[in-house]
Design a protein around this nucleic acid. Structure first.
Length: 200
DNA sequence: CGACCGATCGTCT
DNA sequence: GACGATCGGTCGA
C-alpha cells in the first residue's frame, strides 16, 4: 500500500481530487490502534467563494488550516457533538477542502465498535461524516496534521472504482448556501451500503 | 418508512 | 446570543 504523495493534494481541481479519493484507503493509527477503510463518499468545498464552505467567512482561528498548503487534516466539531474529518487541498492561500462522508471498513472493526459503543457491525458504523469521525478516532486536536504522517494517511492499494458507478450530486445539509447548495460537489459510489442519505 | 426532535458546545456576530 | 458540512431515538401511519 502506497501513501498518496503530497503532490496529489496540491492540485487545483478539488472536485476531481474528491472523485479520485473514492476507492482509496483512509488509515488512522493513533496509539497503535490501526483502523482502515475504503472511501466511498466525499464532498468538495471550493474556497472562499463557495458559500457552503466555512472558508467563505474568511480566515479565522478555526478555518486557518484550510488556507495553508494542502495535504493536511481539517477536523472540526459540528453541532457540539460530531468530529468531522476533512482533507485540505490546493496550495497556500487557497482554502479548498474535502469532507469524508462515508467509508467502508476494512481493518480494526473491533476498535471502531469500541469507539462508537456499537455492539454489532453494520452499515451504520461508518455511514455519514459524524460516524466516520467517531469510528476512526478523530478529534480537533489533530487539525493541521500532515497526511504523510504514520498516524494518519490516505493509501492506494491499486483498487479501481468502476467509472460508471461514480455519481455526482448536491451536497448534504448545506441549504443555507443559496445557489452554491445546488452544485454537484458530492461524489459517491452508487449502490454502496455505507453511503449516507436516502438515495444511494 | 417518514417526520420530528433533542443533544451539546465552539465559533462568529 | 444564535446557529450549525449530524445522528439516533421516538412516534405515527
Amino acid at each position: 500500500m502506497q501513501k498518496l504523495p503530497k503532490s496529489f493534494y496540491l492540485r487545483n481541481d478539488v472536485v476531481k481530487i474528491a472523485k479520485e479519493l473514492l476507492g482509496k484507503i483512509l488509515v488512522t493509527n493513533w496509539d497503535n490502534e490501526y483502523t482502515a477503510g475504503r472511501i466511498v463518499e466525499a464532498e468538495a468545498y471550493a474556497g472562499e467563494i463557495d458559500k457552503a464552505s466555512h472558508a467563505s467567512k474568511g480566515k479565522t482561528k478555526r478555518t486557518s488550516v484550510m488556507f495553508e498548503e494542502g495535504g493536511t487534516a481539517y477536523v472540526y466539531l459540528c453541532y457540539g457533538i460530531h468530529e468531522m474529518f476533512n482533507i485540505v487541498t490546493n496550495k497556500n492561500g487557497i482554502p479548498h477542502a474535502i469532507l469524508i462522508r462515508a467509508v467502508e471498513p476494512m481493518e480494526g472493526i473491533d476498535i471502531m465498535l469500541h469507539r462508537t459503543g456499537k455492539k454489532v457491525f453494520n452499515e451504520t458504523l461508518t455511514r455519514g461524516p459524524g460516524n466516520v469521525g467517531k469510528s476512526f478516532g478523530f478529534h480537533r486536536s489533530q487539525c493541521g496534521l500532515s497526511l504523510q504522517s504514520d498516524e494518519l494517511y490516505i493509501a492506494d492499494d491499486g483498487y479501481k472504482v468502476d467509472e460508471k458507478l461514480i455519481v455526482a450530486s448536491p451536497r448534504i445539509g448545506v441549504d443555507y448556501a443559496g445557489e452554491d447548495a445546488l452544485l454537484d460537489y458530492r461524489l459517491y459510489i452508487k449502490g454502496n451500503k455505507f453511503v449516507s442519505g436516502k438515495l444511494r
